[in-house]
Simulated scan of single mutants.
Amino acid sequence: MTDGAGRTPLTFTAMTYNLWGRWRVADRMPALRGMLRLRQPDLLATQELHPVSRDTVDAALPGHDRVHDDFPGWATRSNLWWRRDLFSTNGHGAEDVGIRSEHARLFWVRLRRPGAPELVFATAHLTWPGHPDEIADDRSPRVAQSRAIVAALADLAGPDDAVLFCSDVNDYARPLWTFQDAGYAEPFGWLGTVSPVTHPVYPLALAQPPRQPGVQITQKAIDWQFLRGPLRPRSAEVVEYFADGVAPSDHKPVLCTYGFPAEREDER
Rank of each mutant, 00 (worst) to 15 (best):
G4N: 09
L156M: 03
F260P: 14
G229P: 13
D223F: 13
D244V: 06
D85H: 10
I149P: 13
E237D: 14
N90Y: 13
R147L: 10
Q40Y: 11
L36G: 05
R232N: 12
M35L: 10
A207Q: 02
V194D: 11
A152D: 06
E134Y: 15
T198R: 01
A154D: 15
G93H: 09
R22M: 01
G183R: 00
T46E: 00
A136H: 09
V97C: 05
D266H: 14
Q47S: 06
D160G: 12
R54E: 01
A205D: 06
D55K: 04
V143C: 13
T2P: 13
R54C: 01
P141K: 02
P196M: 02
D155M: 06
T123Y: 13
A243K: 08
V52A: 09
L255G: 10
S249I: 02
G183Y: 11
G6I: 08
E134W: 15
V197N: 08
P248I: 09
Q40M: 04
A157T: 03
I222L: 09
L191M: 01
P261I: 11
M29D: 04
Q145D: 10
M1K: 11
T46Y: 07
V239E: 10
R77K: 01
A262N: 03
V201Q: 03
A59I: 08
Y172V: 09
F179A: 05
T8M: 08
A162I: 02
W82H: 07
L191I: 06
T46S: 00
S101D: 10
L43Y: 10
L176A: 07
A94S: 10
E186M: 11
A31N: 01
R83V: 11
F188D: 03
E134L: 09
G189C: 07
H92G: 08
E95N: 10
E48F: 11
E186C: 13
R66V: 05
A104R: 04
V97I: 14
W23C: 00
E48N: 07
A45G: 15
D160W: 15
P187I: 04
F226Q: 04
G63L: 03
L231V: 12
V57H: 07
T16W: 12
S78G: 08
L204I: 05
Q212M: 07
G192N: 05
P248C: 05
D250S: 01
A182E: 01
D155Y: 12
P210G: 09
P200M: 01
D250C: 02
S249V: 02
L164E: 00
I217L: 11
Q47K: 06
R112T: 11
P253F: 11
P159K: 01
R232E: 08
A122S: 06
A185F: 14
H50P: 15
R113I: 14
P210W: 08
D171W: 13
W128D: 06
T13D: 06
A157R: 00
L44P: 15
H50Y: 13
R7V: 09
D181L: 09
